[in-house]
Design a protein around this nucleic acid. Structure first.
Lengths: 234, 234
DNA sequence: CTTAATATTGACCATATGGTCTATATCTTT
DNA sequence: AAAGATATAGACCATATGGTCAATATTAAG
């Protein structure tokens, strides 16, 4: 009884497979706690519907022509209506999962999952949580760790990181170079003469086997010199 | 009976809290499917024990002096014995969880969790899976998405990405600059005179509001010029 | 104590880089 | 046809950058 008075969550479905779309709508309508405010077979139409009906959550298919699905996440986020996106996909492509989550999807579910689990996922997301089924989060983490592993392997693969040969002072100089500071600036900041800076810089070039500051900076960035930052394929 | 013959998984515990260490050992011994081959109250000792006893899995406390826990993950990985690490922590610090997983931990559990869940986690990890309790994976994903959100906001926060004002030709020149190519080199590669390169470069500086090539390159890298790469706080 | 590594500086020079101004030649758009 | 954006290029100049050699002070290692 009381449930009748509780405001239903508004949900919108986007999937290029019309039959599937209708199927899910029926399922959710049967469930009764959701209000399916619209369905769309492509992102463009979906975006317009979102603007009009301002759903709480969008069930967005990832396996659509081009990369409409991923782009859809971004575009829905751009609307800045706080719409939550639950990604939906036919298979557990780790790369797709990773990208979807990176772009801000609040969850990712498979079409093959039991309807009860789908409904549970929707509820969790509406309640502000992030929902990734165990199987998918495993895929995600494998992919996640893999990309970092490759990255760190790449860094040390050239025998040793040449950066390790730099002396402390040389590192200080290089750090300033990576901030775009000029020689004169470095001299000022380190309270040494410009000549000294040049000497250090020359030694840095020798050790990093480069011929100019730009290459040195690039080497530093690409080899984890700014240890706080790590790059990651997207 | 047959279980007696099944090879038990070797497990090693590292935690600076000795009582906790002993407690877990007792728990695992009671369980019977594990063989606790060693305990250590610091990483250094732990590493030596790992080398000797080659455990399948290490339960590694994250809340140790300095950042011993995180470093421990890296150092265990460096041993290259295929040792799996299950991180253990007193509280659900999102940053810690994120870093631990990034460094290759196969899972993360809280000391407050029911012992049954701990045992389940250990078994999952031993079986090659990644185990993150729902609550922690939520923390993880919030943190994960947050860092990407901040990154993309940072990129477009200055109204618009200044890179978008560059003409096609200017982009080509800038791209070569980001590869450490000299003016002469650019001229050669684009079949134009060095003077023309300089003109383009000057225009680039104007548009990006910088004064030298290093700054231009840094701007390009930090603002998604190499759109395939994204940086991420670690 | 002696040697080696590091940090510092000066001098000198060649070339690269960056700033400014002017001037064509295309190409697109109005 | 005219206006605007783009790509091209020369001239001139000031400064920054990079290369090389030599020298001193300090510190670390043997």
């Amino acid at each position: 009884m009381r449930r009748e008075f509780k405001k239903k969550s508004k949900i919108l479905l986007i999937d290029d497979n019309y039959e599937h779309l209708v199927g899910i709508r029926e399922l959710l309508n049967l469930e009764g706690t959701f209000d399916v405010v619209g369905i769309a077979t492509n992102v463009t139409v979906g975006l317009n519907l979102i603007k009009k009906s301002q759903p709480d959550i969008v069930l967005l298919d990832m396996n659509m022509p081009d990369r409409d699905g991923l782009q859809g996440i971004t575009e829905i986020a751009k609307l800045d209506l706080g719409t939550k996106v639950l990604a939906l996909s036919g298979y557990d492509d780790a790369d797709l999962i990773f990208r979807a989550m990176k772009l801000g999807a609040k969850g990712y579910v498979l079409k093959t999952m039991a309807s009860a689990q789908l409904i549970y996922a929707i509820e969790e997301v509406i309640n502000g949580k992030i929902y990734l089924p165990l199987a998918l989060s495993s895929r995600f983490f494998e992919y996640f760790q893999q990309s970092f592993r490759e990255e760190s392997e790449k860094q040390t693969s050239d025998e040793e990181n040449l950066l390790s040969y730099l002396t402390q002072r040389e590192e200080e100089v290089l750090e300033l170079l990576t901030q775009g500071v000029t020689y004169k600036g470095v001299a000022g900041k380190l309270f040494i003469s410009e000549t000294t800076v040049k000497t250090h810089v020359n030694n840095i070039f020798q050790k990093l086997q480069v011929n100019d500051r730009t290459q040195a900076v690039l080497y530093a960035i690409n080899n984890g010199f700014l240890s706080k930052k790590v790059k990651m394929g997207v």
